[in-house]
Design a protein around this nucleic acid. Structure first.
Lengths: 341, 341
DNA sequence: CTGAAAGCGCTTACAG
DNA sequence: CTGAAAGCGCTTACAG
């Protein structure tokens, strides 16, 4: 009666005329509590009327569970990364968790920010988007020492469990498409040399060529970086190769944007003179000149699965790297591939 | 001595041989505490050795401050939005805050998620990316009733303070560029009808035409949606207009991607037959066919400022809508604009 | 100058 | 079947 402005559970308890403990138990659906239906309803009504919402920090403190997951990404303006984020976001919301977003580059340069993120009471698990940067392995490993951590879109590195896509299969799908169009001289335009992703896609490319008894030539493999300018530079180099390939498999759609521009400026017509196929689909490819043929991979699912595994404490299942292959890689044929000239 | 596994402040205090209170005060740099330099150093050392990191939830509970800001966005794969997020992310990290990311569409369909986000102990302020969707105003207004809220990239709506860019000026800059190239028949290709953004940009377009005594014609204004397919459809319509414009000002670079594709397919050469200029710069425009002339706006700054104002409790300054105009809009001339045919 | 105590809002053994 | 009490890790008036 003395109360007054008490908030939260206390206010609900007062209004319903029961104890705070009982309110807590009823509201959290504790099975053990066998309150009379009437009491139960009174409590529920009070909570509704007061718009009761549990205090996030208090609950986190008490339960030693933050109710939040961290997601460290590299470059959010990359549409591929955005799709992973969306998948993670959706899954987190579905499961009543919130998502804390961080930028890898910033974290790498700011020890305090990194320590704060990993510190107690902030997040219950961390997803780290792999990129092949040197500092990534170190930071992710440090994180894994403190809380459940999952590398996303990478193979397992530095002992950190990882989720990845079926890059080899995507690559083979793309290259097979080119071969079926009659191409025999197929080049590989990758991403940053040494990065998992580019190596796995190159492996798929090589395997598919081998399966058709086609030659791989050193001058037909170019790996520079994961961005459009690198695609431009890489394609420029491939166009100067002797002999010149009639088709190029590009490891990433962002790289392909630059590659197409280079071909265009060199007066090489795609697909009449040169076929181009890239990994990943994105909103802009259908409107490109020409519209790009791509392989779609389940990026959304990747983010989604990462969240589920962390929340289920299941990340050990990915200790050796787990491949997300459902839905399967899908070839989307558009205007950038055609029969060999 | 009995202790054992106590963690946090308690462990530090034990190791340094002082009280928990003193550790708290020394570590948080309380001026009032005048501990001997030696004690101070001993405490600092103990904290360092134990890798002490304050418990986020405990601190949030005690201080009634979450140390986090929320950011609700619409479509993260949109590079414009990504840039705003990056700005907000950087500012938040700089100021020792974390950023909680949410998706507007998801929140609109999930009352529990919305309530949880706004509930006590989660975030201290909220940024809501304006989009002109019907539900946006309502949700943002509800948020503003509970905690400091800022609409981002929108004018103030439903009484919620807002930060926006200098859209009018950007539009005038773009249109002036076209006029200076000799164009007199300039069309406007906007975004979703009724949305702030498209109206402000159309106003700038109209003002600049008027300043040059140029005619605006109803058939030269098309507003459909903020995506590439809408740009495609819109440009198709403009190309059929009588008389046909010789230049198009596009309100958004994403829309412009579709618009360029439509022109290309219609056999209209850009810039020889038609000049195109768009608002916002993005990584892919330089590699387009042709490379787009754009107006760059301080998107990064927008996110940055939103965070600063919320943390400084300054959002009231934006009650009537505050224009971020520093750095000023900048015209980047590339290959999609040329003298009137 | 430093410490003991209260309390932020919750949950959950433990009593009754 | 329900309540009083302890305690999660912190900060900060209040004592001494």
């Amino acid at each position: 009666m003395t109360a007054g402005r008490r908030t939260g559970l206390h206010a609900v308890a007062e209004r319903a005329g029961v104890s705070v403990s009982l309110v807590s138990r009823i509201l959290s659906g504790d099975d053990a509590v066998r309150a009379r239906p009437e009491t139960r309803e009174r409590v529920r009504a009070a909570a509704r009327e007061l718009g009761y919402q549990p205090h996030g920090a208090a609950r986190a403190l008490r339960l030693a569970r933050a109710g939040a997951l961290g997601l460290v990404v590299h470059d959010m303006s990359n549409p591929i990364h955005a799709e992973i984020i969306r998948g993670a976001q959706a899954a987190a919301t579905d499961r009543g968790q919130v998502l804390l977003l961080s930028d890898a580059t910033q974290l790498a340069g700011n020890d305090d920010a990194f320590a704060q993120l990993l510190g107690p009471g902030r997040i219950d698990g961390l997803m780290w988007q792999g990129s092949g940067e040197e500092y990534d392995d170190e930071l992710a490993a440090r994180a894994a020492g403190r809380l459940p951590t999952l590398l996303v879109n990478s193979r397992s590195r530095a002992g950190v469990p990882a989720l990845r896509l079926d890059d080899e299969r995507a690559a083979r799908l793309a290259v097979r498409h080119l071969v079926e169009l009659g191409h025999r001289d197929v080049a590989y335009l990758g991403g940053r040399p040494g990065a998992d992703l580019t190596e796995r896609r190159r492996a798929g490319y090589a395997a598919e060529l081998a399966a058709h008894d086609l030659a791989e030539r050193p001058q037909w493999t170019v790996e520079l970086e994961w961005d459009a300018p690198a695609g431009y530079a890489g394609m420029t180099r491939l166009l100067a190769a002797e002999p010149r390939p009639t088709a190029v498999f590009v490891a990433n759609v962002v790289v392909a944007v630059g590659a197409l521009a280079a071909a265009r400026e060199a007066g090489v017509r795609v697909p009449a003179d040169l076929s181009v196929v890239a990994v990943h689909d994105a909103w802009f490819v259908a409107h490109g000149a020409p519209p790009l043929t791509t392989v779609r991979l389940p990026l959304h699912r990747l983010g989604d699965m990462a969240v589920s595994m962390l929340l289920d404490g299941d990340q050990a299942r990915a200790a050796d790297g787990l491949v997300i292959d459902d839905p399967a890689p899908e070839l989307l044929v558009r205007g950038s591939t055609a029969a060999r000239p």
